[in-house]
Write a protein that binds this DNA or RNA. Structure first.
Length: 582
RNA sequence: GCGCCGGUGGUCUAGUGGUAGGACAUGAGCUUCCCAAGCUCAUAGCCCGGGUUCAAUUCCCGGCCGGCGCACCA
């Protein structure tokens, strides 16, 4: 089945391995003419549903970003895997995990490779699989981010982004300004992301360069609520962590409202699960091969507080096509800490609050001469002390510790005072709700779920039952034969329909049935045939892919009719048109 | 990265120590041709490198690529 689909994809221009003239590269695929358009259509549908209809806005950030971004995001630490391979049995193990499991050391991930090798030797660590000695075996570093140099030399390392999200997070200060500092607001981005996978697999499912469509919805966790009413009745197929851990775990079907009320899904996640369900269904994902699966506690990413995956069943395997993650304030907090900018939003109180605040205003003309280089740090220490423990300023002297040294400062020189301050609001770190769609996997799912074979008079017909909304070629136009003027009429119709914005393919090669089958295999939902009668009555045969039914429609109605069919305003079955005489 | 299996026109495949045959598809033509019809003609192939050999697509080694299993998938 998947072999058939991959073969069809290659033959019909959906996708194929890149650079095969040079032997190919593992994990890189090229979308052919049909595939690129299908992917565009899926992206457009996503934009329409997750962005435009939700009132969010899109940005377009670089794919290369400097190292500090990924130091802050945590990717640099958690993206480096240290692997040690057993010389006896060939099994690979995470070196840091071996150390953590067999010693008192925690967070071995941040230890340099050479020290890890020493630690393995010192503790005489052995292969968990076959107990062979691992001392002296080199530890290899697998960096799953693609590294590059920005500018000449290697003084400014950069990385290809492993997710598009960071491009949104790092620009949060500008984006918040754009949103006039009002929460909530959402920012989307569609673009390439890169992961240097150890072992790319399953054609387009696990690749090294892929397209993500991400939404980062910034909310105030204390007061913002999702507009649940819009999707309250949408039914979700849920596979919770609890059910997964049972031997006979089952899916439960709940509406979005029920899932929230019963505490199964976080309300913001639930909202987007509802939006997502509507979207998957609209582009042709088979809902019998679809579920939402909650991440198990040990499975969650370093940034994620709760996470549900949308999964589709493809060739009997469940694949993740979207991650719905409640990232809390992890990312903004990290960038707030690591960068010079402010990643908070100022939230004004309804009523200003009057609060007492203890402050210091140290007399630097005293601290400086008295304590020299430590003076600045002492002043900082006094400030934190005042916030934390104002009683410390009750006596004649205040004691602070700086760099292991204790200093005594006369209280009068600290400028300590308790004042009433009017606070009009506070700085809050927004929380982030993130639906992160793997476009390539969605495209693969759409193709796989559309793949049908019919038996027609003993012959197999292969057909991609793609939704008209996403089908890359929307209509095929054929002259019954290219003679007696039928070709000219068909070419005119082709031009007119293209001018109306439709994707049209013209084909006059071979028997008419053959041409229908070609389009069936590409997934073209409709075909128009110009015959001898058309030359008399200015009408043509319109044929639908899935039913192979035909109706006769006037040429002048074609563009409106087809536009309605594409937009879903009408269906072929609803057309009030006569069947052709044959 | 490890293990097993594999790699012949666009696709599917037969076969061989003396460089290849079929089917489908594709193109041109004929046929009033509405669901893969028929006929004629045409285009197009042994993954790459090294070794053995007079000679390698075939045997051996390595690589690349693919499928599956293990590990990995933040």
């Amino acid at each position: 089945m998947s072999r058939d689909l991959v073969e069809l994809a290659k033959r019909r221009g959906y996708f194929f391995q890149s650079a095969s003239a040079y032997g190919g590269v593992s994990g890189f695929y090229t979308y052919g003419p049909e595939g690129a358009t299908l992917k565009d259509n899926v992206e457009d549908a996503w934009r329409e549903r997750f962005q435009v209809r939700e009132g969010h806005r899109e940005i377009d950030a670089p794919t290369v970003m400097p190292e500090p971004v990924f130091e802050a995001s945590g990717h640099l630490d958690t993206f480096d895997d240290m692997l040690v391979e057993c010389p006896e049995c060939g099994e690979s193990h995470r070196a840091d995990h071996l150390i953590e499991d067999n010693t008192d050391i925690e967070e071995a991930e941040s230890i340099p490779i050479s020290e890890v090798e020493d630690l393995i030797a010192d503790h005489d660590l052995r292969c968990p699989n076959c107990d062979a000695e691992l001392a002296g075996v080199p530890v290899e570093d697998f960096n799953l981010m693609f590294e590059t140099n920005i500018g000449p030399g290697d003084s400014s390392p950069g990385y290809l982004r492993p997710e598009t999200a960071q491009g949104i997070f790092v620009e949060f200060p500008q984006l918040a300004e754009y949103a006039r500092n009002q929460l909530p607001f959402g920012i989307t981005q569609i673009g390439k992301a890169y992961r240097n996978e150890i072992s790319p697999r399953k054609s387009i499912i696990r690749v090294r360069e892929f397209t993500q469509a991400e939404l980062e919805h910034f909310i105030d966790p204390t007061e913002d609520e999702p507009p649940l009413d819009r999707v309250a009745d949408v039914e979700l197929t849920l596979y919770s962590a609890e059910e997964q851990e049972k031997d006979d775990g089952e899916y439960v079907t709940k509406t979005v409202r029920e899932a929230v009320d019963e505490g199964i899904v976080h309300e913001w996640i639930a909202y987007y699960l509802g939006v997502g369900k509507q979207w998957y269904e609209s582009i042709g994902v088979d809902m019998d091969r679809f579920r939402y699966r909650q991440h198990l506690p040990g499975e969650r990413a370093h940034y994620s507080a709760d996470c549900w995956d949308a999964e589709s069943e493809v060739d009997g395997d469940w694949i993740e096509i979207t991650g719905y993650s409640y990232r809390s304030d992890y990312d903004l907090g990290k960038h707030d800490e690591y960068s010079d900018d402010d990643f908070t939003v100022f939230k004004q109180y309804d009523e200003p609050k009057v609060v007492e605040r203890a402050t210091v205003d140290p007399d630097m003309s005293y601290l400086g001469p008295e304590f020299g280089g430590a003076a600045g740090d002492i002043a900082d220490a006094l400030e934190t002390l005042a916030e934390r423990d104002r009683k410390a300023f009750d006596g004649e002297e205040v004691a602070v510790e700086v760099g292991g040294e204790e200093y005594a400062i006369p209280t009068e020189k600290t400028g300590f005072s308790v004042e009433e301050v009017k606070e009009t609001g506070e700085h809050v770190l927004p929380h982030v709700v993130e639906p992160s769609i793997g476009i390539d996997r969605v495209v693969y799912t759409v193709l796989d779920h559309a793949y049908e074979t019919d038996e027609i008079e003993g012959e197999t017909r292969t057909r991609l039952a793609l939704e008209p909304a996403v089908a890359p070629t929307f209509v095929g136009v054929f002259p019954l034969m290219d003679k007696d003027g039928m070709g000219e009429v068909a070419r005119e119709i082709t031009d007119d329909l293209r001018a109306a914005g439709l994707d049209v393919t013209y084909d006059d090669s071979g028997n008419i049935g053959r041409r229908y089958r070609r389009q069936d295999e590409v997934g073209t939902p409709f075909c128009v045939t110009v015959d001898y009668e058309s030359l008399e009555d200015d009408a043509v045969t319109l044929r639908e892919r899935d039913s192979t039914e035909q109706v006769r429609v006037p040429i002048s109605d074609l563009d409106d009719l087809l536009a309605d069919l594409q937009a879903g305003e009408t269906t072929f079955a609803e057309l009030d048109a006569p069947a052709p005489e044959q």
